[in-house]
Simulated assay, not measured.
Amino acid sequence: MHHSGRTFAVDLNGHSCSCHAWDLNGIPCLHACAAISWFHGNPEDFCDAVYKKEAYLRAYQPMIMPMTSQDQWMKVNLPPLLPPKYHKQPGRPKKTRKQAVEEPKLPSNPYKLPRYGIPLKCANCGGEGHNRSSCKDY
């Protein structure tokens, strides 16, 4: 089969395709469906047996009875369940908490202005694009 400039080999008897999607999940990929429809077949006949209605009914054949309400449960003479005990993790505690990805980043010093967007200006000659240490007029 040709799809998006690539060629895929489909084996209908072996239930496999060279894109390996059919091999992985047991459901025919679009290349396999095209090959099946070319031979006037039904793609549902080529699906793995676990996806069919009979397998679903076989899995749920023994009736699962709903649970009764909590006040009708059997009383057991065991102590009540407690949460696990707190265990302090080794290592130094973090100074700041971890921020979420969508949370805006706060500057480390709120009183300092950012440098981006402002052109460099030389304190020696007043020209733009360089500073005093790289000035040619000094």
Rank of each mutant, 00 (worst) to 15 (best):
H3W: 06
R6G: 05
T7I: 03
F8Y: 15
A9Y: 05
V10P: 00
G14L: 04
G14D: 05
G14M: 02
H15V: 02
H15K: 15
H15C: 13
C19R: 04
W22D: 01
D23M: 08
C29N: 02
A34G: 08
S37W: 03
W38T: 13
F39D: 12
H40D: 14
G41A: 03
E44H: 07
C47K: 09
R58I: 01
A59C: 07
Y60H: 15
M63F: 05
M67G: 11
T68K: 14
Q70R: 11
D71L: 10
W73P: 01
L78D: 09
L78I: 11
P80R: 09
P80E: 06
L82Q: 15
K85C: 07
K85P: 06
Y86D: 09
K88Q: 10
Q89S: 07
R92F: 10
R92E: 13
P93R: 14
P93E: 05
K94H: 11
Q99T: 14
A100E: 10
A100V: 00
V101E: 11
L106P: 00
L106Q: 12
P107W: 00
P107L: 01
S108C: 07
N109I: 03
Y111T: 14
Y116E: 15
K121Q: 14
K121D: 06
K121F: 05
C122H: 04
G127V: 05
E128T: 14
H130R: 04
H130D: 06
N131I: 12
R132N: 08
S134W: 00
K136M: 04
